[in-house]
Design a protein around this nucleic acid. Sequence first.
DNA 1: GTCTATACATGGATAGAC
DNA 2: GTCTATCCATGTATAGAC
Lengths: 227, 227
Amino acid sequence: MTLDSAPVREPRPRKAKSPAKPALKKSEATRQRILDAAAFVFRRKGYAHARLSDIARKSRTQTSSIYYYFDSREAIVFEVLRIANEKTALYVTNAMAELPSGASARDRISAAIHGHFRIVLSDNDYTSAHMKIFDQLPDKVQRHFLEVLDRNAGLWRELFEAARSEGVIGADVDLSVLRLLLLGMMNWSIEWFKPGRMSVDQIADQAVRMLFDGVGPRPATELADRA
Amino acid sequence: MTLDSAPVREPRPRKAKSPAKPALKKSEATRQRILDAAAFVFRRKGYAHARLSDIARKSRTQTSSIYYYFDSREAIVFEVLRIANEKTALYVTNAMAELPSGASARDRISAAIHGHFRIVLSDNDYTSAHMKIFDQLPDKVQRHFLEVLDRNAGLWRELFEAARSEGVIGADVDLSVLRLLLLGMMNWSIEWFKPGRMSVDQIADQAVRMLFDGVGPRPATELADRA
DNA sequence: GTCTATACATGGATAGAC
DNA sequence: GTCTATCCATGTATAGAC
C-alpha cells in the first residue's frame, strides 16, 4: 500500500523501448547518476553540508549541468526522499508477502520488523540519506514527506490493532506509544550498526523477541523473584 | 560517574563570591545568555542552519560581540554539548540515587530508564540540541563527544551485566544489541513525543514493561497460542 | 565590553557560447 | 546537453573606534 502510487512529481511518460533504441533513454542515465550521487553525498555529509559541486564531481558532470536535469538543489533532495520512501515500503511489503495467507498477527509483525530492519541497515544510500538529512530539510519538504510517512505508518497501526484483537497485546499497552517506540528502536539502529558480529536478521530477531515477550497479557510478576 | 569530571575546557577559576559583589560575575551572565541562546537556536535550526546572527539576536548582543566570549562558532557548540552531556548523566544518576541500597538490577535499570526519558523529553534546549545536531558537527567535535558518550555508556553496560548475573536476562540475548536497541528507543522518542496524552513516566513505564517481560529467560511459547 | 564597518570565502544559480 | 564565466547573496571572522 501507498506503494503503487506513481511518482508524485515528474510523470515523464516513457514508452518502454518500442522501436530499436538499446536500454536507457539516452541521458536518462545521467539523471540517474546525479540522483545516485546525491544520495551518496547526502548520506555522508548531510543536507546542509552537501555541495552541488560534490554531487557534480561524484556523478561526473558539472555543477551547472545539474540544472539541466533539476530545477534546484531542493528538487534533487525531494526526488531522493521520494525514492527512499518507495524503497522502504517495498521492503516491508515484500517481507510480508512471503507469509502464508493465514499468518498470525505475531508472524506478520515479525515479518514487517525484519523487512524494516533490512532496508534500514541495507547500506542503501537513499534510505540512509533519508534518515540522516530529514530534519535538516526546509519545512516545506519536511511537511510533504511527513504525510507520506504517516500514510506508511498506517500499515503498522493495522498490524498492532490486529494483534490486539488476537489477544497478543495487553490491555494496558498503548498501541501508539508501542508503535513509536518500536520504530525508534529500528530507525536508530543505523547509528550504531556495524556489519560483522551480528547479522541484520539476528538483530531483528532480538527485537521481535523483546517486543512480544514483553507485551503479553500475562503478569510479569514471575520475573520479579530474583536472588 | 563521569559526572564529577570538571569541565574539560576553559577552567575559568572563580572565587565563589568572596568580597561583596552580588551574584553572577559581571558579564558571566552575558556568556550564559549566549550559550542559552545557542542551545535554543541549535535545537530548532540544526547546526548548519544556525547563524551567529540568530544567536546574537536571541541573546541580545551583536554578532561580533560573541567573539569576545568565544573563539569561534565551533567553540560555542562544543560548550553546548559539554553541558548537555553533563545534564544527561546528572539526570540518570539522580534517578538511581533515589533507590534503596539493595535494589535489584531490574529496579536499577528501571530507574535509569526513567531518568533518561525524563531528560530526553524534558524540553531542555541543551539536550535536545545535542540529539538534533550531533551528526551535523565537524568530525573533530563528533569524535570528542563520542568518547564522552562511550564513557557514559559504561553505566548501562554495568547495569545489564548485573541483570544477567541476577538471571533476569536470557542467555541468548546479546547485551550490546539490547543496550543499543534500548537507547535508540529512548533517544528517538524526542522525534515524536508531544506533551499531553501520556506522561513521560508513563512512557518510561511502558518501555520498562516491554524490555523486561521480553528479556526473561523463560520460553515465549505460551504466547504463541492464538485464536 | 560593545558597536560599526568591512574583508574574505563560499556556494547556489544564471547567461550564453558551443 | 555540456562547458566557461560570472552574478549575487550569505555568513564567518576581524579591525578598530568608542
